[in-house]
């Protein structure tokens, strides 16, 4: 089906394509996307649509659930911002500088993906609880991490970090030295070179990484529930409320919350992607 659709699209392309393979690549992409993602996801929408609008609103937007959305989305935004800054520095250092143990550290960046989320949550709680190494250090300053919303952000930073580092790294590596050399020889200061040459080149990758880290943080369950404390209205994340609904054998209620989360994060991701395309288009037009 997708092959025919794609053939129809091509006349709208802005110029005649010199490169082959669009139909095949697009067909494969759409086929897998539909089979694995879109059709199964539509089950969530169908299920929550079956419950009727009023009950959907009652379940999906009750005050306790709203508080959970705020925590999940706010926490994930904050975590993505932290990851954007820290991840950029980490990627920069790993690609550009040489120091003992660099390879080992580079390899370790994938850890948050490989470690089962529950283990990550337990490990982080062990560290940041008042009895832990870090929690013990922070306690005298009145800073509480474990069992507070701060803990939620810490867990989200942990699971999102590889996204930023691993999307920025390849672009930094492929960056052409000659551009920098040229800028330098034209009299640009190092700071100007970074700002005018390097930042525009890595910005798309950085935004992508941050968007992905954000998306992952919003939905995260396994690691967060261990460190969050799960107090209603304070440190209760939205996915926990989905699980709560499921425990009551209320699948429709669970899908209502899931639908709201899904639509929200989809819209946010779409905005980020469009912003990026728009910026890229303007950039090439200059």
């Amino acid at each position: 089906m997708s092959g025919a659709r794609v053939a129809l699209w091509r006349p709208w392309a802005r110029r005649r394509e010199a490169l082959p393979g669009f139909g095949l690549a697009m067909g494969l992409t759409l086929a897998i996307l539909c089979l694995v993602v879109l059709i199964p996801l539509s089950a969530v929408f169908a299920m929550s649509a079956g419950m009727g609008w009023e009950r959907f609103v009652a379940v999906g937007f009750e005050p306790r659930v709203m508080a959970a959305y705020r925590l999940s989305f706010g926490g994930a935004l904050l975590a993505a911002a932290i990851n954007g800054l820290a991840g950029l520095v980490v990627a920069w250092v790993l690609v550009r500088y040489d120091f003992p143990g660099r390879r080992m550290i580079d390899a370790m960046v994938d850890l948050p993906f490989a470690l089962p989320t529950a283990v990550a949550g337990i490990a982080l709680t062990t560290l940041y609880a008042p009895t832990g190494w870090l929690g013990g250090l922070l306690e005298p300053w009145g800073i509480k991490v474990a069992y507070t919303p701060v803990g939620v952000v810490v867990a989200m930073v942990f699971i999102g970090l590889p996204f930023v580092v691993r999307t920025v790294e390849p672009v930094l590596e492929e960056l052409d030295d000659e551009l920098e050399e040229a800028a330098e020889s034209l009299g640009a200061s190092r700071w100007q070179t970074v700002r005018m040459v390097i930042v525009p080149a890595i910005l798309p990758a950085l935004t992508t990484g941050m968007a992905l880290a954000f998306a992952r943080g919003v939905g995260e369950y396994g690691s967060v529930i261990f460190i969050a404390g799960n107090l209603p209205g304070i440190s209760e994340i939205a996915p926990l409320l989905i699980v709560t609904r499921l425990e009551q054998y209320d699948t429709a209620g669970a899908t209502a919350i899931a639908t709201v989360m899904l639509v929200l994060s989809f819209v946010l991701l779409l905005l980020i992607n469009l912003l990026q395309r728009w910026r890229a288009a303007r950039h090439t037009a200059d």
């Binding site: 709680t125 009895t131 529930i225 404390g229 799960n230």
Partner: peptide
């Protein structure tokens, strides 16, 4: 002060933490 999601989590909170 903490609602763990399961019994093991609570034991851990109490005994280990």
């Amino acid at each position: 002060p903490v609602f763990d999601s399961g019994a093991r989590g609570s034991t851990n909170t109490f005994v280990q933490r």
